[in-house]
Amino acid sequence: MRIEFDREKCQGHNRCYMLAPDLFDVDDEGYAILRDAGEVPAELERQARLAADNCPEFAVVLVEE
């Protein structure tokens, strides 16, 4: 599973940071920072899915191989 994050769409709802803290950090203004783009380690797949399923702006996308 790969994770993609679109900074242009992000409006700082911070759902990803709350639900997937191992995948996302947040800057001082509250916009998301994806820690590591690309392949999601198996143990973080659940966090990745929660982030993608709860972002109101559809800014987090998962690509399943």
Binding site: Q11, G12, H13, L50, D53, N54, C55, P56, E57, F58
Partner: peptide, 14 residues
């Protein structure tokens, strides 16, 4: 578990 609700709005005025 899947909840993209808009209670806080969307877009630049979030």
């Amino acid at each position: 578990e899947q909840n993209r609700h808009l209670a806080f709005g969307l877009g630049i005025h979030r």
